[in-house]
């Protein structure tokens, strides 16, 4: 195992079949991938390319990497019917998430309000990603001045995907819950025929608990919940999952969504979108996507499984989700 910290997250590499020195070299190479992505896409680093774009007052000449990310984001917006939208950057700042989260959390105890509070009586505009004009041919990006972009989770997933290309055949890369599992866990070397990697899904009500154990092979997994990146804003709790429709932290009947997909970026985007959509619309969204499985933990304790999942163990409160209609209509308020 090799661990490092980047993107405000613990990155862990599992490659038990590699000699220790090769594993360390691989870990450093993975670290370089994360460092490069953070330097380019962090909205908390003043000189990052994304921060420059967010400050640009005219057409911005974007790097191929940023252009590609914005074009992929456009596809994700369409896939999630707008529940994933990178133009929530301003709403995150308004909610108090204007610095890296450890600083937000440290500040919340002493100052329970956003650092840049929205002026009273000022109704926030609900920006949409369609307003971002990406000129692929000329490499230019046009951004309305009042829109701040945030690519946070999507870029973390994309970076896990990119770094996973460095992995040997039987290895796993875990970035704070966004993980790519490749091949088989060598611990299963004597072979019981099951193969793959076992992945625990955390219980959002108890960080030490587990609601399910899944078996993944050549797949990726990501989880979205409001139990970790949250802070006090005034009299209420705020969290980082902003509903683009309201511009505020999402209010939903879900505690957590875990998505299994072919790529970590796709899993991350879908988990966030389903969480924001609520159990009914989220299940409907996920169920029509091929090759996607999901574990939904509802606020009433129900544990719902969706799509093709290899569930090894799960909590007793679980039931398979045959169809989205099986869920009582308790969509987000």
């Amino acid at each position: 195992m090799f661990s490092l910290r980047a993107m405000d997250t613990e990155i862990t590499l599992h490659a038990p079949g590699l000699p220790a020195e090769h594993r360390a070299a691989l870990g450093l190479a993975v670290g370089d991938v994360f460092a490069a992505a953070e330097a380019r896409f962090s909205r908390f680093l003043h000189h990052s390319e994304l921060s420059q774009l967010n400050r640009a007052t005219e057409a911005f000449a974007a790097s191929p990497a940023l252009l590609a990310a914005l074009l992929r984001a456009r596809g994700h917006v369409a896939m999630t019917e707008g529940r994933f939208d990178p133009t929530i950057g301003g709403a995150l700042i308004a909610a108090g998430y204007d610095q890296s989260f450890d600083r937000v959390f440290a500040r919340a105890g002493e100052r329970a309000s956003p650092s840049h509070p929205r002026p009273a009586g000022h109704a926030a505009r609900r920006p949409r990603f369609e307003e971002i004009d990406v000129d692929e041919a000329r490499g230019l990006v046009y951004r309305p001045l009042d829109i701040q972009l945030d690519l946070g989770g999507m870029i973390k997933g994309a970076t896990v995907d990119e770094a996973s290309r460095l992995l040997p055949r039987d290895a796993a890369l875990d970035a704070g819950g966004d993980a790519v599992l490749r091949g088989d866990d060598p611990a299963d070397g004597d072979g019981d025929g099951s193969g793959g990697w076992l992945v625990e899904v955390e219980d959002p009500r108890d960080p030490d608990g587990t609601v399910a154990t899944l078996r993944l092979r050549d797949q990726a997994v990501a989880t979205s919940a409001a139990n970790r990146r949250r802070w006090r804003a005034g009299q209420r709790w705020a969290h980082h999952l902003i509903d683009p429709a309201t511009g505020a932290p999402a209010r939903t009947d879900l505690l957590q969504v875990t998505v299994v997909a072919d790529r970590a970026e796709r899993a991350e985007v879908l988990a966030k979108a389903a969480f924001i959509a609520g159990s009914r619309d989220g299940a409907r969204l996920l169920s029509r996507l091929p090759g996607v499985g999901a574990v939904l933990v509802r606020a009433d304790g129900a544990l719902l499984f969706l799509g093709a999942l290899d569930v090894v163990e799960h909590a007793a409160a679980a039931r398979p989700l045959a169809a989205p209609s099986a869920i009582a209509p308790q969509g987000g308020p």
Binding site: M1, T9, A175, E200, E202, A226
Partner: peptide, 8 residues
């Protein structure tokens, strides 16, 4: 299990 998925 070596990997644990959670929100982060």
């Amino acid at each position: 299990p070596r990997v644990r998925t959670r929100s982060s």
